[in-house]
């Protein structure tokens, strides 16, 4: 029991379960999932589907943060990816074919990789602080997206493209499947290889890592490229969902949600040990919160405040110092259970 309480995922999971139960209290059919026309429907599915872009971006963000960095440009990269693909479809001679959609997706993915490479270059080769380096693209990226779309909102009608955000396979929304695949791929890529440990090593102690022979530059580059890729795919989902590219509003503030998801998931902003599962739970908490706001009928004016409150509570629950303080108030005399190995 004690070990369970100390596990770093216990509190986020508990928060998520509590949020879901709260919804169930107010809406009896909240947790039910039903099959209709061979497709799964229900609030839980909605949470997963609407949360897919945040989950994707938060995955990339987790690795960036583990390496002691941060990527503020993900929202802008998502907007660029949507702009590139929609503009391509819009201007192509055959705007509704599968082939056009495939090329559009490929172009967007390449754009994401290139932008990630740019961020990685600024951070690891030029040596600019990550928050500044990615701030460049965060602001300039929206402008780039507008250049691509010529300042217009580009609407497209291509069934294949639309299915990325709204389609179903085997009864499940495609966006959920993409996010799940990305989650598994990231997990396998970092935990089945040594990449995860090496990223953590660079995040914990860059100097010692270099002296141990790690190629920190390549590793840093890799995490930003991965983050760019995730952002691009998320951008495709967002634009496909509304069948349009909106350079100004697509993925707006999504970097904040992603960073929050990572932090709620227990990965420290100081870098080092990370948890992809934690990030997944963190992203789900954020999405569930948005849903809860609607379920409870909370007026839109207080939505953001409500969200902030829940996030603060989760973060406080996670902080061991805050928990100790709470305990001390209840029981003035407590033995610390922190076991140090002394020799």
């Amino acid at each position: 029991m004690n070990a369970l309480l100390k596990h770093r995922l216990t509190w986020p999971v508990l928060a998520l379960v509590l949020l879901l139960l709260l919804n169930q209290v107010f809406r009896a059919d909240f947790l039910s999932v039903r099959l209709q026309d061979g497709h799964l429907y229900g609030s839980l599915i909605d949470i997963l589907r609407n949360g897919a872009p945040t989950i994707l971006i938060a995955l990339g963000m987790t690795l960036v943060i583990a390496s002691r960095g941060i990527d503020l440009s993900v929202g802008a990269v998502a907007a660029i990816a949507g702009a590139v693909s929609c503009t391509y479809i819009y201007t192509s001679p055959d705007p509704s074919s599968l082939q056009t959609a495939a090329v559009a997706v490929a172009l967007a993915v390449v754009a994401g990789l290139v932008l990630g490479l740019w961020n990685g270059f600024l951070v690891s080769v030029v040596g600019i602080q990550p928050i500044i380096a990615t701030l460049v693209l965060m602001t300039a990226g929206r402008g780039l997206a507008q250049l691509v779309t010529d300042g217009q909102i580009i609407s497209v009608s291509n069934d294949s493209y639309q299915s990325i955000g709204a389609g179903f396979v085997l009864g499940l929304p495609i966006s959920i499947l993409i996010a799940a695949a990305a989650f598994l791929a990231a997990g396998l890529l970092t935990r089945r290889t040594a990449l995860g440990t090496l990223i953590e090593a660079v995040g914990i102690n860059p100097v010692a890592s270099r002296l141990a022979g790690l190629n920190a530059r390549t590793i840093t580059m890799a995490v930003y490229v991965f983050s760019g890729l995730c952002a691009a795919v998320a951008g495709l989902m967002i634009s496909s969902n509304v069948t349009a590219a909106d350079a100004n509003n697509a993925g707006l503030y999504i970097e904040m949600d992603a960073i929050l998801a990572v932090v709620i998931g227990g990965t420290s902003l100081a870098g080092g040990r990370y948890s992809l599962v934690g990030t997944l739970i963190g992203a789900l908490i954020i999405q569930t919160l948005t849903t809860t706001v609607y379920t409870l009928g909370i007026p839109p004016e207080v939505t953001l405040v409500f969200k902030a409150l829940v996030v603060i509570i989760v973060c406080l629950l996670q902080s061991s110092r805050a928990r100790t303080l709470l305990k001390q108030r209840r029981r003035p005399v407590t033995a610390t259970s922190d076991v140090k190995v002394a020799i």
Binding site: T197, E200, I204, N205, A208, A212, R273
Partner: peptide, 16 residues
């Protein structure tokens, strides 16, 4: 500062 990766285990440090 130049040797330990403090938050990793003995094993991770040893094989780094």
């Amino acid at each position: 500062e130049e040797g330990l990766i403090g938050d990793l285990s003995v094993r991770d440090n040893l094989v780094l």
